[in-house]
Design a protein around this nucleic acid. Structure first.
Length: 408
RNA sequence: GCGUCGAUGGUGGAGUGGUCUAUCACAACAGACUGUAAAUCUGUCGCCUUCGGGCUUCGUAGGUUCGAAUCCUACUCGACGCA
């Protein structure tokens, strides 16, 4: 019943590896994609569907479950996994990301992953004149964070200790330390201040976690991952990884915002510093290309809302790139979304799904979510297999060539 | 047959003398979405354009007026009422 990570095979000449994470609720064969079930549900899907498409674990969110229905109620069910009938491994995010999405990112149009052009434009814009005081729903201080509920506007407070208490009540196998996810627009000076504070919070999270763990009667051992920050600055990323790497964490999350073409580089800086024998999770990343650059630079697990979010908005992954099924060209297309992938959704035509989208039927969200999650879960599983088989380079080349081919 | 009311862009429906290619919604056509404020958001949506602008629309045909989707007349069509 112990948490343990084993490396099965390394990817020659890179930081990549295939391995297995043992958790109290089963193994995760890595690299792996972990579907996000923020509020103890993977949106639009039943747990049977999530399982059948090959998911090994689910990640839920502390912020959302704390607000609704509250961690005590979740604890009465025996944890969020039991509540949602998921019997495999689970993660909970700390609520730290909401410090970003409801704080620095709130109403600013900044996203976790930006293209360098859009970022440059935003930076120019923010330097332009004195901007009106921006409205956020978050106030950060040394002790923790005050934040306003997105549900009813009421004010709440998270500290590292509080986040750990809530996460223990929610009952996942793997927790994340409470961190501050900064804006990509923040200057080096602020990023430095933020990681120093995040490191102090990490230590406090660890202390509280150990205190709470000692009092558990279940005999299960939960793992705690520290979260590396540092924005797009190499010195800060490395410093953050070294500092947290020296602490007694079971694994590490890599958080923060990235420049689209540079995710791999930032990950490499971090993974070069982190202890090799502990698992690394890349928080909130998961477009097809990102998996390759993440994995060869040392990432073991990913989570991302993108497959399910874009699915609800009508976009589907195919081996020839992402398509928008709402578009006219699919109205009479009687092929399946991706003929080379077999799952529940593949028995339906693009035309039928386009019809469901156009008539606003909720089944469209379910069918495309099944497909997209199956696509990314399978893709990462294939990458894992290619590492074991020694065919990674060919596999990567073949996949990317087709997925990102430019049409002239 | 008489009377009343009505006819607006793909649809519904505002607008009742200038600021009207005409509010708005829907539909349509695209785009975005990366630790879920998200079954969401953004743009386009008469024709042409060298993107400055140009041209044509509010049932049809006339008229009044400097100026009409808006006022008048006739006609066409529709709904309702009376015969």
């Amino acid at each position: 019943m112990e948490f343990k990570f084993e490396i099965e095979k390394k990817l020659e000449g890179t930081l990549g590896r295939a391995g297995v994470i043992h958790t109290p609720h089963g193994d995760i064969h890595t690299p792996a994609f972990i579907p996000v079930g923020t509020k103890a549900t993977v949106k639009a899907l039943t747990v049977e569907q999530v399982k059948d498409l090959g998911s090994q674990a689910v990640l839920a969110n502390t912020y959302h479950l704390y607000l609704e229905p509250g961690e005590d109620l979740v604890a009465k069910h025996g944890g969020f996994a039991k509540m949602m009938h998921w019997d495999g491994p689970t993660f909970t995010d700390s609520g730290g990301f909401q410090v970003f999405s409801l704080g620095a990112a709130y109403g600013e149009g900044v996203s976790k992953v930006a293209t360098s052009e859009s970022l440059a434009a935003k930076i120019a814009e923010s330097k332009d004149e004195q901007k009106v005081e921006r409205q956020t729903k978050v106030k950060i201080d040394e002790e923790g964070v005050d934040f306003q509920s997105v549900i009813d506007g009421s004010w709440h407070r998270f500290t590292p200790e509080r986040s750990m208490q809530i996460q223990h009540a929610l009952g996942a196998d793997i927790f994340f330390a409470f961190d501050e996810c900064t804006s990509p627009l923040a200057p080096h000076e602020y990023q430095k201040k933020a990681i120093d504070r995040t490191h102090r919070w990490a230590k406090r999270s660890l202390d509280e976690h150990q205190k709470l763990g000692a009092s558990h009667s279940t005999g299960l051992q939960q793992a705690l991952f520290g979260v590396v920050q540092g924005g797009s600055y190499e010195d800060l990323r490395r410093e953050s990884a070294r500092t947290l790497g020296a602490m007694d964490f079971d694994g590490f999350g890599i958080g923060g915002s990235f420049t689209k073409d540079d995710i791999g580089t930032a990950v490499r800086w971090v993974c070069e510093e982190l202890p090799e024998g502990k698992p690394r999770h890349l928080l909130g990343i998961g477009e097809p290309i990102d998996f390759f650059y993440g994995i060869e630079n040392g990432i073991d697990t990913f989570d991302c809302v993108s497959p399910t979010r874009v699915a609800r908005n009508g976009a589907a992954y195919t081996f020839d790139g992402r398509i928008n099924l709402k578009n006219k060209e699919y109205v009479e297309d009687i092929s399946s979304i991706e003929p080379e992938l077999t799952n529940y959704t593949s028995t339906f035509t693009r035309s039928y799904i386009a019809h469901l989208l156009r008539s606003n039927e909720i089944l469209a969200a379910t069918l495309i979510s099944i497909h997209n999650l199956h696509f990314v879960v399978t893709l990462v599983a294939k990458i894992r297999q290619s590492i074991l088989d020694g065919t990674y380079t060919e596999f990567k080349e073949q996949f990317l060539k087709r997925y990102y081919k430019k049409v002239d």
